[in-house]
C-alpha cells in the first residue's frame, strides 16, 4: 500500500501516531512543536484528530482564520425521478432510501460518502448536488514562523478523512501564508494523527514523509505498536519509536525494538509532575530544558536522514 497523491508543497511532514489512544501523541506533538518554534525553525502543527482536536489548548489564542470544510451530497427531485432504482444500485454505501409506491426517495446524509455515483447513474436528470458542512479548519498563529491548523469534525459524520486531507493541504501550503507570516519552503509540518489503524490513521500517515510512533511499556502498548508497525511497513514508511512513561510496566517494547532493529528515538520517563503539568494544559518542555533539547535533536536527526521532503515524489 503506497500513496502517490500529488504533492504541491515543499514541506517535510512528520506524523506523530500511535495505535493505542492516550499514549502521548498530543503530548509529543505539542512539545515538539514548541521546541522547534523556540529555535525559530519554521513549523506548522496540523491536528488531524478531527474527532477530538486538542492541540490548540496548549497555545492560547483565537483562530486567525476559520475555513468551513464541505462535502457534496445528492439532492433528489421526486417530481422528476422515475424510480428506476439505478442510483440505489450504484450506491456502494446503501445511502439511497426509496419507496417507489409512495414516490419517496432520499439520500441518508449520515451514510453518504459524496462519491457522485448516483449523479452519474441517474438518466432522468433528477439528481443534483449541494454542499454540506462536515467540519472546519481553524488556523492559529503562534509566532511569525509557527502556525497550528486544527481540523474539527461536526458530530454525526461517518468519516473525517476529507477534513484530514484538507488540514494537511492547508498546513503544507507555504505559498499561502498568513499576513505577516514567513512560511518557508521546506518547513516542517507536524501531523498529530488520529488514534487507531483505520482509514483516518492511514490517510494521515500516507501523506507523511516520516512517522514517529508513540507507545507505552505495557502489553496493550506493545500489541498496538506491532499493529501500527505492520501497517507502516506495508506502506513503506520510515518510522521510529518514542517510548512514553518509561520505567513503568515491563520491558516488552524495548525487547521487541531490539529484536527487530527498529530505532528507539527517545524514552520519556514517567513522573507524576509531568502528568500533572500536562493535565493542566501546560507544556512540560517549558520547564524542562533537557526535554526541549532532546526534541530539537530528534527533529534534526530525522530531517538530516530523510531530507527535505521536496525531492520525494
Amino acid at each position: 500500500m503506497t500513496t502517490h497523491a500529488a504533492r504541491n508543497d515543499l514541506a517535510f511532514r512528520i506524523a506523530i501516531a500511535s495505535g493505542k489512544g492516550g499514549t502521548g501523541k498530543t503530548f509529543v506533538a505539542t512539545n515538539l512543536f514548541y521546541s522547534l518554534l523556540k529555535q525559530n525553525i519554521p513549523v506548522t502543527l496540523a491536528d488531524c484528530d478531527a474527532e477530538g482536536p486538542n492541540d490548540a489548548i496548549f497555545f492560547p489564542g483565537r483562530p486567525v482564520r476559520s475555513l468551513p470544510v464541505t462535502r457534496r451530497t445528492p439532492v433528489i427531485d421526486e417530481r422528476i425521478c422515475t424510480f428506476c432504482g439505478k442510483c440505489r444500485q450504484f450506491c456502494s454505501f446503501h445511502a439511497i432510501f426509496m419507496l417507489p409506491v409512495s414516490r419517496v426517495i432520499r439520500c441518508m446524509d449520515e451514510l453518504c460518502h459524496g462519491c457522485g455515483a448516483c449523479l452519474y447513474a441517474c438518466d432522468a436528470g433528477a439528481i443534483s448536488e449541494k454542499e454540506v458542512q462536515m467540519g472546519e479548519l481553524n488556523v492559529f498563529s503562534v509566532t511569525r514562523t509557527a502556525r497550528i491548523v486544527e481540523s474539527r469534525m461536526q458530530p454525526g459524520f461517518p468519516s473525517p478523512v476529507t477534513l484530514i486531507k484538507a488540514a494537511i493541504r492547508e498546513a503544507g501550503h507555504a505559498n499561502t501564508p498568513l499576513p505577516g507570516h514567513s512560511v518557508l519552503p521546506g518547513h516542517t509540518v507536524l501531523l498529530d494523527a488520529p488514534p487507531g489503524i483505520g482509514c483516518p490513521f492511514v490517510q494521515t500517515v500516507s501523506l507523511a514523509d516520516y512517522v514517529i510512533l508513540v507507545t507505552e511499556p505495557t502489553p496493550f502498548g506493545l500489541s498496538d505498536l506491532k499493529q501500527s508497525v505492520e501497517c507502516l511497513q506495508t506502506m513503506e514508511k520510515p518510522f521510529g519509536v518514542v517510548l512514553n512513561r518509561a520505567g513503568t510496566g515491563n520491558d516488552g517494547v524495548n525487547e521487541y525494538l531490539d529484536k527487530e532493529g527498529f530505532p528507539l528515538l527517545m524514552e520519556i520517563p514517567f513522573e507524576r509532575e509531568i502528568a500533572f503539568n500536562y493535565a493542566r494544559g501546560r507544556l512540560v518542555c517549558k520547564s524542562w530544558p533537557g526535554f526541549q533539547h532532546a526534541l530539537v535533536k530528534m527533529h534534526e536527526l530525522i530531517r538530516r536522514t530523510y531530507g527535505n521532503g521536496h525531492h520525494q515524489r
Binding site: 500500500m1 503506497t2 500513496t3 450504484f90 500516507s206 506502506m235
Partner: peptide, 20 residues
Amino acid sequence: SDGQVAIDEANCEGCGLCSR
C-alpha cells in the same frame, strides 16, 4: 504512474464509480 493509470489504495473509498 509512468504514464499508466493506477489506484492509490490509501485514498480509495471503494465507491466503485471508476469501475462504472
